[in-house]
Design a protein around this nucleic acid. Sequence first.
DNA 1: TTATAATCTAATTAC
DNA 2: GTAATTAGATTATT
Lengths: 220, 220
Amino acid sequence: MTCDSELEQIIYTALTLQDDYPAFCPPPKDQDKSSSSLFGLIPDPLPGVENQGILQKTIWELYSVLGIPQDSFLNRSLKHHDLEPNKESLSTNNEISKGRKRPLYEEEQRESKKPKLEMDHYLPSARTRCRRRTIYSKEQTLFLQDQFDLNPYPDFVSRCHIAKITGIPEPRIQVWFQNRRARHLLRATGSQVPHGNTSLTEEEPRCFIYGEPQYPDMWG
Amino acid sequence: MTCDSELEQIIYTALTLQDDYPAFCPPPKDQDKSSSSLFGLIPDPLPGVENQGILQKTIWELYSVLGIPQDSFLNRSLKHHDLEPNKESLSTNNEISKGRKRPLYEEEQRESKKPKLEMDHYLPSARTRCRRRTIYSKEQTLFLQDQFDLNPYPDFVSRCHIAKITGIPEPRIQVWFQNRRARHLLRATGSQVPHGNTSLTEEEPRCFIYGEPQYPDMWG
DNA sequence: TTATAATCTAATTAC
DNA sequence: GTAATTAGATTATT
């Protein structure tokens, strides 16, 4: 009914969505499939969030395809993120880490003689090792390149501006600039012109640009 | 009326919030304070999002304290993030990067003879260079340490699980594990026991653990 | 295949 | 002490 690419798309859509809304992160897989408890896994509607239908539908599809039953630790985990990050959410649910140790992987601990099979089952290292590769549109890439020409070291606030304008999450912006610097700043001084005439990282090839940021020529 | 620490808290609260909701990222500072346009900066209520009052109040406080007027590029920027990341949001607003180059910093370009003052003004490198340091609660730290003992290399799905349970954003989980590995895995084999008897990174001191992950002893 | 997003180490900064 | 950032190397997707 659902081919592999479809399933993968569903999974990564859910993972991408939960990146913005942690409450929708899917639970770990479990072989004990009791179909009666399937509905218990569908998260309650997050009060107020838009595109509720899309989120719910995606998670529902994911759970249905994987046949994930209601796991015990989920009952003890946080119900809903209160939309305020890092607000000691665990303090009201401190039986997670106080009452027992390692609630997430207690299944693996119990049968510690089949570690790799269990691990591959729980954490499919081939498919979910990395975050799904982000594809940027032509307009997004052009805008990022323009910003890079202006300042290859945007600070947090600048990255937030870029994130707002492009719609790209700020951590992706950070990674994009890291990769861009590795490709272009170093290539400009290193491989293309081995003797370095491009005056950007000339005098200090491996400096940390903290106290006195070095900017392109148009900035002075 | 508002002391510096208060202002800083407001700024970073807003920045943290916009990390989850990019539409609420504050605009860049601007000296042209025309108080009449202040209300134009207050973002429209994001339809449906909870804690609307907190977000609105925070942004309002921030804008009021900074006296930020309605910037021109804000009119051309995205109105509301459509809650689906990386969905070529720019394609419907492609006049941002098509119609003109570098809309975000056109002010600096115009007066390119005062680069550092302008840059310091726009991008206060001392205060907003880095993301505000995240403070983890005792329960969060304990849970992360437990997960680290089980698997110091959690993949994307595992990091999402941890993010869900702890309420910490996934990128922060990633950074936490990076720092923890640098502190503990290397310290265990390097400084404490210089000759390395702890069998974790023994045969391959600088390997990338991709194809065949190495896990602690309890995993085999 | 190439380009590049994501991950990793190691050193470092800064809170 | 530790969260965040950086360079650089590497993996791996498109």
